[in-house]
């Protein structure tokens, strides 16, 4: 067996192991399905009652933002799970086996894509129920979802590194919260950025979360003719800018995480 096939086989074994856990721990499934429903309903009706986005209903505007925010938060699960495996000594077992060193991380990040797919599906259904619609083609919709998942996958690798660096899973959640909350709020996710004060506005316009959200809105046909796209390159070329970030994050964090995995010691 070549090294590549062997590594892929190992990653598949780990992915399967992680997916069994989703099946066995119902709490996790509740987290991945109920909280997205809650977010869609909360934002749609609480914020939606006060926020007016010209030319398009708030629910139309909101959904792509909620999608992006939820999957970015969802990717912290990658770091949480790795920190937990490290704490419980399972990583020690894996590291003492003649398996590909990258397999645990590829397996982890891939099974977390499944988590995010479940979240997205649930949110999309809830969105459709509260009045969100896709106005473009099937291909456009697929592209929108794929872009969101790719971005979440890249963030997963950032979280993987965090998970391997800290000592307890809880720290991953706390650390991620401090970074991800501002990252997903200082953006065009929930409100248009036009009225943001400088320098928040500049940050929001170059924030990759904004670009991914903008790209998804474009692909779903949820943009408003009365709400011009801010005149910055990042948002004018939202798809390209999003992909640049995805590639950048993967190129930097995949090797860093794999290196840290090789050094990771429990306790």
């Amino acid at each position: 067996m070549s090294a590549m096939t062997e590594a892929a086989g190992d990653a598949f074994v780990i992915t399967k192991r992680n997916l069994i856990k989703i099946k066995r721990v119902p709490d996790l499934l509740v987290f991945t399905t109920l909280s997205p429903i809650m977010f869609v309903l909360l934002f749609a009706y609480v914020f939606g009652s006060a926020i007016n986005v010209p030319g398009v209903g708030y629910k139309e505007f909101l959904i792509a933002g909620i999608f992006v925010q939820t999957v970015v938060f969802g990717s912290t699960f990658t770091g949480y799970s790795l920190a937990e495996d490290l704490q419980k000594g399972i990583i020690d077992r894996f590291r003492s086996l003649p398996m590909a060193p990258s397999a645990v991380l590829y397996g982890r990040t891939l099974s977390d894509v499944v988590n995010n797919v479940i979240s997205l599906a649930v949110m999309a259904l809830t969105g459709l129920l509260v009045g969100w619609r896709i106005h473009t083609s099937f291909a456009g919709a697929v592209l929108g979802f794929v872009l969101i998942l790719l971005f979440a996958y890249a963030i997963s690798w950032v979280m993987a590194l965090v998970g391997l660096l800290v000592r307890t899973p809880e720290i991953v959640n706390n650390a991620a919260f401090i970074v991800i909350f501002p990252l997903t709020f200082i953006a065009n996710t929930f409100v248009p950025t036009n009225n943001f004060p400088e320098p928040l506005k500049t940050f929001a316009n170059w924030n990759p979360v904004s670009a991914v959200t903008q790209a998804a809105r474009e692909q779903f046909g949820n943009t408003s003719p009365l709400l011009p796209v801010p005149d910055v390159w990042a948002l004018q070329h939202a798809v390209a800018y999003s992909l640049i970030w995805v590639i950048l994050l993967l190129v930097v964090f995949i090797p860093l995480s794999i290196r840290q995995y090789g050094k990771a010691a429990s306790r």
Binding site: R17, I20, K21, R24, G89, I90, D92, R93
Partner: peptide, 11 residues
């Protein structure tokens, strides 16, 4: 076989 029985409890 390590000190804190490293089996996956969900499997």
């Amino acid at each position: 076989s390590g000190q804190n029985a490293a089996v996956d409890e969900h499997l």
